[in-house]
């Protein structure tokens, strides 16, 4: 008899864990898009062969354990300060590839100042921004990105613009700054969106490789646990009300560096 047909016929691996994604179980809740986004970042690091020269800057939030999951050197920054820490790292070691990975509470609340000024200075960094409309790690408080009407532990009757203000569209806001080279918003709630989001991260990485300035990719992400939804329903929320308010697209794409 010949070899088992399963082994002989299906011998070409077409999908395996990215090399830069450490082979351990993650602490993320079931269906949380942080896992998907980590995977995409790891794939893009592999694609450009950046693993040995990458320094990641992690933030505070559910993605705080980035250093356990992505097989690169990682600096842990205080809450919201990743763009400032990354500025120091990149300026001290300009030949390294430097990215930050930040939640919406981190980047759009406590770290608003750091991201705006890093972008305005045109720091040559890549920013992965995960917008799940809440403070996931601390139990689902309102973030500046929380949707109007969204019930959170600090807006039990739903976010009201009278008093709570409006959800901030960070990708558009940062696109308005001269130093920003690339700004896009993507989602990972369908297979097609996942593929498109990889293109955006590749573009963002290429911007840094080509010395263009700050690149940011905002991911519309889920937090099934604090939204009180099943993962599939959480994805429907992203595809529905969240993408209506936070449109997907590329808001800025620099073609030529300001300095050379």
């Amino acid at each position: 008899m010949s070899a088992p047909p399963g082994k002989a016929r299906f011998s070409k691996a077409v999908y395996a864990r990215p090399r830069s994604l450490v082979d351990v179980k993650s602490h993320f809740c079931p269906g949380c898009h942080h896992g998907t986004i980590h995977k995409i970042v790891a794939e893009c690091i592999d694609r450009y062969g950046l693993r040995e020269k990458t320094i990641g800057v992690a933030c505070v939030g559910c993605s705080v354990f980035l250093y356990d999951y992505i097989d690169v050197d990682v600096v842990e920054s205080p809450h919201g300060r990743a763009p400032a820490v990354a500025t120091g790292v990149k300026r001290a070691q300009p030949d390294k590839f430097v990215f930050t990975y930040q939640g919406d509470g981190d980047l759009a609340a406590i770290g608003t100042s750091e991201i705006i000024h890093a972008a305005n200075r045109g720091e040559n960094l890549s920013v992965i921004f995960v917008n799940n409309t809440t403070y996931g790690m601390t139990g689902g408080q309102m973030a500046p990105t929380t949707m109007l009407g969204q019930k959170t532990s600090t807006t039990p009757y739903g976010r009201d613009f009278r008093g709570d203000g409006y959800p901030i569209r960070m990708a558009e806001l940062l696109a308005g700054l001269e130093g920003t080279a690339y700004s896009a918003r993507v989602a990972v709630s369908t297979p097609a969106q996942i593929r498109k989001s990889k293109e955006a991260v590749r573009k963002a990485f290429e911007m840094q490789i080509n010395g263009m300035g700050l690149s940011i990719v905002e991911f519309l992400s889920t937090c099934p646990t604090n939204w009180g939804m099943k993962p599939l329903d959480a994805q429907k929320r992203v595809l529905g009300e969240m993408s209506e308010y936070f449109p997907l697209g590329v808001f800025k794409e620099r073609v030529q560096a300001d300095f050379a």
């Binding site: 070409k12 179980k25 898009h33």
Partner: peptide, 17 residues
């Protein structure tokens, strides 16, 4: 097609062709 593997947030699916 590997769509399932790309979708899995926990990278627990391997695919062969």
């Amino acid at each position: 097609c590997a769509i399932c593997a790309e979708t899995c947030p926990d990278a627990c699916i391997l695919v062969w062709r």
